[in-house]
Nucleic acid binder design. Structure first.
Lengths: 344, 344
DNA sequence: CTGAAAGCGCTTACAG
DNA sequence: CTGAAAGCGCTTACAG
């Protein structure tokens, strides 16, 4: 035994000598019902402690007002913020939010997506796992006419809504800022180039240098430095160059930037005077390091809200040709002490 | 129009000239079905791209394999970790996880809980909002025989499962550590005493002092210092005492401890030599401040896993008299430089 | 092992 | 405005 019997609309109908359909109409606030009857039903329902069975209602109506989310990790600053923003919107609309994490594994992601499809959710929101694999599972979502919204890390080939940070823009602004602060040899810590977000950041770096007439030097671009440890390692090597950089843009993450800072501190290289440091993401800790770290805010909570609003707006005026729109969230440079050697 | 027609078991049955019930048996891997028939059904189902309608199945079976979670904020380090741990377990069991945030508001919490009750979820996991209110909504959950598991911030009067950090133990160990490091006047930053977690931490502080024969001095206990700003303010006042403390235990949070550290740094008071500082929660930033901050780890991911396991274990051997068990997660002191003035 | 039937708790055309 | 009936897509006793 688990549940005790819940009151159903039949229980109410019987008590009031009404038809179940009338009870249903009263509860759903239909206009095809007498005001007095409605009041009576509502009163009785409250007395009998009635709660609608959402599963039955959804089955009959053929839709499930829930949004499913699949992210690599729930407890990562960026993702938990996106989810928080999304929840805000979905809750307001009376929608549920079901959450899965892929742990960066493709197989886990597939399982999660399939579970959501079985639930007949009205929308799936996803940021794909780092582990590569086919995207049949996502194609399946589209085939079933379930809305699919990709964000941040997306499968580019797939024609779906995409909500992205304008990574090129963010990187571009960071590098322009460094140039304006008088840095002349700006190194780049790159992320894995299979992920488009890292390719775009590299493009932004190059665009800024070109615009200001600086050379693009391969010796100053360091591949695959997307953890604190790899950032530190990259920094050690870069600073050992015959002609070392005077600024390092850790385009991968603030964690990499933290690795840069630690190496600089250990070597007694003063920041920002001799070495400028810029990260990416505006993790909370960047504010409290010494010196505080310049970085790029991605407006993650706002991004979550945008995703939610996109879904609900599209539900209203559904236009097939509008299915592949890309929404860009414009990131913002947060200037802090690690790059500030001129007064602003 | 939203969804196109999905294949149902009737479509499969028709194609194979079978009864729907046989198709159902084959798909649910029943033993009351011929092996050949089963293989044929499975093959055909795959060809026809069949996906079970979870709503129909759940409705018929009278249960919904999902767990609902209500927390003050999804994007808070502690809570997102608990959710991550919980998701790990629920996913393994093929359960869904539905998430609501109360934003610390009682009314929002009530709405969230009711939505989950309507869904007929099999378990609700909750950490209550700071805003006080009645707990009729939680009583309602129990009345409907839905399992209720409270964690961290709980309604003590309510007889439910509770998963708690052993806050008294954590605080006790921190203060003992401070005493062993030679600190003699240890101040306490308290949280709001309406919340039991903060009362318990105070008890741990007092117990440690008593055990070592130290006086309990009200001048060294500072109420309501649970943000960085309030922590800083408290520190300024404490250090202005005629006989100031030589250590401050910010029992409320690491953020308060950060406030303490900043005031100490600004006043040129060396940490840990002249002032020991200990926080609570092991936020990521405590590792990277200068000096790094001693704190208490709450094993939040592990706590989430414990909650999940509790639910699934109890489902099996359901014993009414075991319904009010309390599980304590033992916290762990993380010793860092902010309190380390002796070699260990 | 297979089929026919009932029913989970709703909603919604269809009559009146 | 109200009722009787059908049906959403499954599962599961009940016969055979």
């Amino acid at each position: 035994m688990k549940r005790q019997k819940r009151t159903t609309i039949y229980d109410i109908a019987q008590k009031l000598s009404l038809a179940a359909s009338s009870v249903s109409r009263a509860l759903s606030d239909s206009n095809k019902i007498n005001a007095e009857t409605k009041a009576l039903v509502l009163k009785t329902a409250a007395e009998m402690n009635y709660q609608q069975n959402a599963m039955a209602s959804n089955l009959r109506k053929g839709n499930n007002p829930t949004i499913g989310v699949v992210v690599p990790r729930i407890n990562q600053y960026f993702f938990s913020n996106v989810i928080a923003g999304l929840e805000e919107v979905t809750f307001k609309q009376g929608y549920n939010l079901v959450i899965c994490q892929s742990n960066e594994l493709h197989a886990r992601e597939v399982e999660g997506v399939n579970a959501l499809v079985n639930q007949n959710v009205s929308c799936i929101v996803i940021s794909i796992a780092a582990e590569k694999g086919s995207f049949d599972h996502l194609q399946q979502v589209l085939d079933r006419n379930i809305q699919l919204i990709q964000f941040d890390r997306v499968v580019e080939e797939l024609e779906t809504f995409k909500v992205l940070n304008n990574n090129k823009q963010g990187a571009y602004e960071a590098v322009v800022h460094l140039i304006e602060q008088g840095y002349r040899r700006i190194a780049l810590l790159e992320g894995p180039q299979e992920l488009h977000i890292f390719r775009e950041r590299k493009e932004g770096y190059i665009a800024a240098l070109q615009e200001y007439g600086f050379p693009i030097l391969s010796e100053l671009m360091y591949a695959n430095a997307w953890t604190k440890e790899l950032g530190a390692q990259a920094t050690t090597q870069l600073l050992d160059l015959p002609n070392p950089p005077d600024a390092i843009f850790a385009s991968t993450s603030d964690f990499a930037a933290l690795g840069v800072l630690e190496v600089a501190n250990n070597k007694g290289i003063p920041t920002p005077e001799a070495l400028g440091i810029c990260g990416y993401s505006n993790e909370p800790f960047t504010e409290i390091t010494s010196p505080s770290i310049t970085t790029i805010d991605q407006f993650s909570v706002e991004m979550g809200r945008k995703i939610g609003n996109l879904h609900f707006r599209e539900m209203e005026n559904f236009s097939p040709e509008g299915k592949t729109k890309t929404l860009n969230v414009r990131p913002k440079l947060i200037v802090r002490n690690s790059t500030l050697r001129k007064l602003q």
